[in-house]
Design a binder for these strands. Structure first.
Lengths: 234, 234
DNA sequence: CGTGTGATTGACGCCTGTCAACGTCTGTGG
DNA sequence: CCACAGACGTTGACAGGCGTCAATCACACG
């Protein structure tokens, strides 16, 4: 599929000032603009697969990607989501390891591929960029540690409430208080680390408790503080 | 407490070639040798506290440190252990955030403090060092993600078996097959994310199943493959 | 010898996973 | 336009893993 020239330049990317690349020089920006390859991906496509070698990173121009690991019996554990301005795959590129997660599109996306060599070269030549990237990794590390604590200590009920709040923070609500990301019950279960049926039951309890409203797959959050209370969030 | 001059130089450190600093120039090594401050810490002392600002990193010369977060009701969740050659606190130093974990000595240790400024300067001026550090962060990130998956999907029994294997890999066995790290039952529970009583019961089940032997706080691993089987480790 | 910390054991019950059945919706093909 | 298949959502029944509480034991230390 062909795309317009403007789409392939970082200069015209609406996320330009918010990505990890914000501190690149114009020259460096041009470098990745030339090298990279911006393409649309349909819902359901897999960007990269756990266990495979990965030849570069992807900068997300639009859409939503879920990043997950495959655990026991093939059950997926969603680690995080990536959306516009985020970058995925850099961990494997920099560490030279195989991908430890799978990235799958859950909302039609446009992704810019950046070759690993280019990425590593930028890391080595631009101090600000390497520091930004390091800080990103550190931030993710902190979040991962926090999530380990939550998942190890909180009940499923608490975790589900917490996840709803986290989704709100990351994807925001529209003007009707609807979560701006729609997931299947199974996907919610795969974030929380529980069974689909448990998610269904707890969601309808939250509904009875007037914390949320359910309209099919769309979730309206009506009592944020109530949810935070249920989730033990301070 | 005074220590010998030799102890304060990285040159004489037995971990010299295995630490994150292995690619520093002699000049840079001297730089941290001069700046740093190597001191003994007794079991029980806290190196840094969750939520506090942190002014530098610590390179572990000897001993064992547990790194944990404090969760609901003050229950600690052990994230990892650090031993000789490891470095702790760099996450907060580089990201400029407050410490997101507490570091407490569980076996008498000797730690070298490296001021944050020095550390950041090294990160900026030495490409190999920054790449090594980035790879370290990426590796930790991968491990954290794997642990999230395990803790979310495995039973307590499986996780306990897995933790015993992980402890074996990190701290090795002595010539009598004893784990070279001794933890309280509560600490084991705080890694696995369960109740102390559950750890006690499961350990004695493992003992009945001839997978381990218990001698007070010391654990002898007699059937590694059996443990791996119980822990679903491939 | 008293005190405190950690280890152990038993009782109890709830949370949550599993299994099964059924309802709902969407898209496809005849 | 209808039938059907397949994916997803929902509900109920049920059992068992695991957390909690309480009592007791073991051991070290001042």
């Amino acid at each position: 599929m062909k795309h317009s020239p403007s789409m392939s330049s970082c200069d015209s990317c609406s996320n330009k000032f918010e990505t990890i690349f914000k501190h690149l020089t114009q020259e460096e920006h041009d470098m990745i603009s030339l090298d990279k390859n911006c393409e649309p991906y349909k819902k359901g496509s897999v960007i990269y697969h756990e266990g495979n070698r990965i030849s570069g990173c992807y900068c997300i121009s639009s859409g939503i990607i879920k990043i997950y690991k495959t655990g026991i019996d093939g059950k997926e554990q969603i680690i995080t989501f990536a959306k516009n301005g985020d970058i995925i795959g850099f961990r494997s590129v920099l560490s030279g390891e195989l991908a430890c997660t799978t990235a799958k599109v859950i909302e039609d996306s446009s992704l810019c591929f950046i070759p690993g060599d280019t990425f590593i070269q930028l890391f080595k030549q631009n101090r600000e960029f390497s520091m930004d990237l390091m800080q990103l990794a550190c931030k993710e590390l902190g979040e991962a540690n926090a999530y380990i604590t939550d998942i190890a200590q909180k009940t499923v009920r608490e975790r589900l409430a917490e996840i709803l709040i986290l989704l709100k923070d990351n994807f925001h609500l529209d003007n009707e208080q609807f979560l701006q990301i729609t997931l299947t019950r199974e996907e919610l279960a795969n974030i929380v680390g529980t069974a689909t049926e448990s998610v269904i039951r707890l969601l309808s309890e939250f509904k009875s408790d007037k914390l949320i409203e359910l309209h099919g797959r769309r979730i309206k959050i009506t009592d944020i503080n109530g949810l935070k209370k249920v989730g033990n969030i301070f």
